[in-house]
Design a protein around this nucleic acid. Structure first.
Length: 885
DNA sequence: CGCTCCCGCCATGCC
DNA sequence: GGCATGGCGGGAGCG
């Protein structure tokens, strides 16, 4: 024990680093020692803090209780130091304590020393933030309780909150599995998305507490009936876990924790006061809010807040209002999540626990290196969780059994409010569907989250994560083909490939809308710039390329996928994407396009017929692009598409926002990213009733299909039945595929992509499929700007992909993934596209900035990436055209 | 004085 | 019935 403590002590000071984690395992971290002088002092003192130390030790030996106390004390000290200080005071502080009271203290450690927050820090210090995927750390509640010197009850409080964020998962009685923060980003992303669905509007609109309260109350009741009970996100644990364990009733603390986090994520200000949060949470749960309940809720929130504070996700602040000063908490964790959490991870280890910093950084980071890492990690991650991984994608939830259950339930149930859960559900479904239908491969990347696409709904993001999508996308194309490709990449290069893949395909598409009945849209995401994030690698290149890619995405994606496999290029691309993000974050996408895919393509190739498809894809994208593409390169090409879309949009627009969004996007895109382009396909042969729009970006695949022979298309989109639509304005499609897709595994991932089958379509109702949310990126620039875009055809869309990744699943039956075959879309190339009006020049004008979109939030422009994209969904597709031809 | 929130009773539910 | 969980709220530490 002594040893243990010591190590800890040393580190104390520097809080930042993750000393904690390391400490325990590694012992002392070098860092620490050096860091604080203070420590040194500490060290010198051997074990005994106080003169009586020795005596104490003896006593403790005799008495377990004493021992515990001592432990506590010691433990606390370190922690306190770390926290409180950074300053040397800590030493003094400690010393003082020791000296003064010694025993007394032991007996009566100050309340602070016993706080849940400190306890949680101690707890966290025992485990690495980013444990190797391979190692699974199991936590024994009894053991931990004993070590930390607290009753088990307290450990439950901590673990429940950690579980809500997926830092741990329950494996069995008394046993929890430590996952660390690898999935934190994803989890947060999911929560953000879920939160937006639930609270987004409210928050967006304003923070006012009251407003919120009211709104929430109303909404929740309306919307979320059930959701409350079940965890929005389930995090399930690994498949492995016994399902039985979970069976119990939902843990309110866990749900509460998630909701609480959601509030932060949705909040513009990132500050949430306890009373508001309590009210909101109470309302959800119950109608009656009596004072006592309120008090209880607040107490719980304190518990949760303490843990979150220890995690470095929030910090306490005070908000002064009319009524006075109110306690509140501010979110200091990551705001935008790349989908990949991984990035962070990579860094994090180094850095520390203090989340704030890192996280914030995350976004920024995205350097190539990071990106790579990410992927890699994912891969590893997946591997780690084999079972699940396969099925679900990694990202989202690892666990499966539960999830499955939930999913199932959800499906059946309907969970309710769909909107709310929609995203999640959709995702799952998609996955499931795909899986079942296809292979299961689907694994999709989705895992990330579904990104919602729309501005409204989806707030988030899409971003990065997406990548996986790509893969998915690929698969989409044609399974057969896709698969091959996927497989290949998966196998290969693995990460890179995967990454590439993701983007490629489908990136993310954002969503769909549709009012009109007969239309069917497919959008790809565009990627927003961000998306790309996934791509880590090359950073630089990436930027541009990414942008370029973004524009191109679809095509690119495909290419990528293929490329990836084959070549290195892939990596680059990804990175690029990221960069884009970084750079342009704002911009989402541009339409343009891209082309280029071919560049690398090939390699992978495709195998046979299917392959051919794949191959085609590339070609296709070309095709797609072609019409546009060639131009695309120029950017102008896009126009046509735009036109179509616009029209549609106009029609569809129902949602105003969307349109706006689009516009915005476009502008942004202009910057660089791509715009999403869409191809409008007239109903051709079989589709009589449907019109299709493909996003140029993604389109490739799809299109290609049409053009080519693909027997069936698989689009990574989601389909929604019109009926469903009615209720909802938008649907996002996740790009399924993509999302995370780490897919390394391969097969599935590909599978993931959804296919739509005509049958589904049959309904005539309008459907939208989007892959990515991309939406609108800023197109405009393209024309003029060529600079960016032009660049890297190779890139591929990655960015887009990313976003799109998040797929949405629909609960409704609608979704599905059947393969659709659109055979006919004729349009192979450009023709279809149409351009109705493209406004090239204007595009910028058209596109509104993100801001215009409704959600400002989304806009985080910053890198933002992701978000933006999401919103795009609705947007129209405007593309700028530039001069195509 | 009031914000925090520790502490532990006790309900719930699995085994 | 025993045990693991975890809801809950009294009431005390602390600023």
């Amino acid at each position: 024990e002594n040893i243990f403590d010591r190590s800890r002590m040393a580190p104390k000071t520097p809080i930042k680093s993750e000393p904690i984690d390391l400490s325990k395992q590694k012992g002392c971290t070098p860092e620490r020692n050096p860091i604080t002088p203070v420590k040194i002092t500490d060290r010198p003192q051997p074990d005994p803090w106080t003169p009586t130390a020795n005596l104490k030790i003896l006593v403790s030996a005799a008495s377990p209780d004493m021992r515990d106390r001592e432990k506590k004390k010691e433990l606390f000290r370190p922690i306190e130091n770390s926290e409180q200080s950074d300053t040397p005071d800590s030493l003094q502080y400690d010393i003082v304590d020791d000296g003064t009271v010694d025993e007394f203290e032991k007996q009566r450690p100050s309340r602070k020393q016993k706080s849940l927050g400190l306890l949680c820090q101690k707890f966290l210090a025992r485990y690495p933030n980013y444990p190797l995927s391979t190692e699974k750390t199991t936590i024994s509640l009894d053991e931990v309780a004993a070590i930390l010197g607290v009753e088990r009850r307290r450990i439950y409080d901590i673990v429940n909150v950690l579980e809500s964020l997926h830092l741990v998962s329950r494996v069995a009685k008394n046993q929890y599995c430590w996952h660390g923060r690898h999935n934190l980003s994803q989890t947060l992303k999911m929560l953000q998305e879920a939160g937006e669905l639930q609270y987004g509007e409210l928050m967006t609109s304003q923070h006012k507490e009251q407003d919120l309260e009211y709104k929430f109350g109303e909404r929740k009741k309306e919307i979320i009936p059930d959701s409350q009970d079940r965890p929005l996100l389930d995090f399930s644990e690994p498949d492995c876990i016994s399902a039985s364990a979970n069976s119990r009733k939902d843990k309110s603390l866990r749900i509460m924790s998630q909701k609480f986090v959601m509030l932060f994520l949705v909040s513009k200000t990132k500050i949430v006061t306890l009373d508001i949060a309590a009210k909101i949470l109470i309302e959800e749960t119950q109608d009656t809010v009596d004072h006592s309940k309120f008090k209880t809720k607040v107490r719980r929130l304190y518990d949760i807040a303490n843990v979150l504070t220890s995690l470095g996700l929030i910090k306490k602040v005070h908000v002064t209002e009319e009524r006075g000063r109110k306690p509140a908490f501010k979110w200091i964790g990551p705001v935008e999540f790349p989908e990949n959490t991984d990035e962070l991870r990579g860094h994090s280890p180094t850095s520390d626990p203090v989340p704030g910093t890192q996280r914030g950084a995350c976004v920024q980071y995205q350097t190539s290196a990071t990106g790579k890492q990410k992927f890699t990690r994912h891969a590893s991650f997946n591997s780690a969780q084999p079972c699940e991984a396969t099925r679900r994608k990694v990202s989202s939830e690892p666990n499966s059994p539960r999830q499955e259950r939930q999913a199932a339930t959800a499906n059946s149930d309907e969970n309710c409010s769909k909107m709310i859960n929609l995203a999640a559900v959709c995702r799952q479904k998609i996955e499931e569907d795909t899986g079942s239908a296809k292979n299961s491969n689907i694994t999709l990347p989705f895992s990330h989250l579904p990104v919602p696409g729309d501005s409204d709904f989806c707030v988030n993001p899409l971003p990065q994560a997406v990548f996986p999508v790509v893969q998915a996308d690929v698969p989409n194309f044609s399974l057969p083909v896709g698969i091959s490709s996927q497989a290949s990449h998966s196998s290969t290069p693995a990460d890179s490939n995967a990454e590439n893949g993701k983007p490629t395909l489908v990136p993310s598409q954002p969503f769909v809308c549709f009012p009109s009945s007969s239309l069917f849209m497919l959008c790809h995401g565009l990627q927003e710039n961000n998306l790309s994030e996934p791509l880590p690698t090359a950073g630089d290149l990436g930027n541009r390329s990414a942008e370029a890619q973004a524009a191109v995405p679809p095509t690119v994606c495909q290419k990528r996928s293929s490329h990836k496999c084959s070549s290195p290029s892939a990596p680059d691309e990804e990175p690029a994407a990221k960069k884009q993000t970084l750079e342009h974050s704002d911009v989402p996408l541009s339409l343009v396009v891209p082309k280029k895919p071919s560049e690398s393509p090939k390699a992978e190739s495709s195998p046979g017929g299917g392959c051919s498809a794949a191959a085609h894809l590339e070609n296709n994208h070309l095709d797609l692009a072609s019409p546009a593409a060639p131009e695309a390169a120029n950017k102008e090409s896009t126009k046509p598409f735009d036109c179509l879309e616009q029209e549609k949009q106009s029609q569809s627009k129902e949602p105003d926002e969307p349109s706006k969004g689009n516009e915005h996007i476009s502008k942004e895109n202009a910057n660089q990213p791509f715009q999403p382009q869409y191809l409008y396909v007239q109903p051709a042969a079989g589709l009589s009733s449907f019109n299709f729009l493909f996003s140029a970006n993604q389109a490739p695949g799809a299109i290609s299909l049409a053009a080519n022979q693909l027997p069936s298309l698989s689009v990574p989109c989601v389909m929604v039945p019109s009926a469903a639509l009615a209720s909802f304005p938008l649907v996002c499609s996740p790009s399924f595929t993509s999302p995370l897709s780490p897919v390394p595994d391969g097969p599935f991932s590909a599978a993931a992509s959804t296919n739509f089958s005509m049958s589904s379509l049959a309904s005539t109702s309008p459907v939208f499929i989007s892959t990515t949310a991309v939406v609108t990126p800023k197109v405009s620039p393209a024309p003029s700007v060529d600079p960016q875009q032009p660049a890297h055809p190779a890139l591929h869309l990655s960015p887009v992909l990313t976003r799109s990744c998040s797929a949405v699943k629909l609960d409704s039956p609608v979704c599905m993934g059947h393969p659709v075959t659109l055979l006919k879309l004729q349009q192979p190339s450009s023709a279809p596209l149409t351009p109705k009006s493209i406004r090239p020049a204007h595009h910028e004008a058209f596109f509104k900035t993100p801001g215009s979109l409704g959600d400002p939030v989304a806009w985080k422009k910053n890198e933002g990436n992701q978000t933006r994209n999401a919103s795009s969904v609705q947007r129209r597709l405007e593309i700028s055209s530039t001069s195509p031809d």
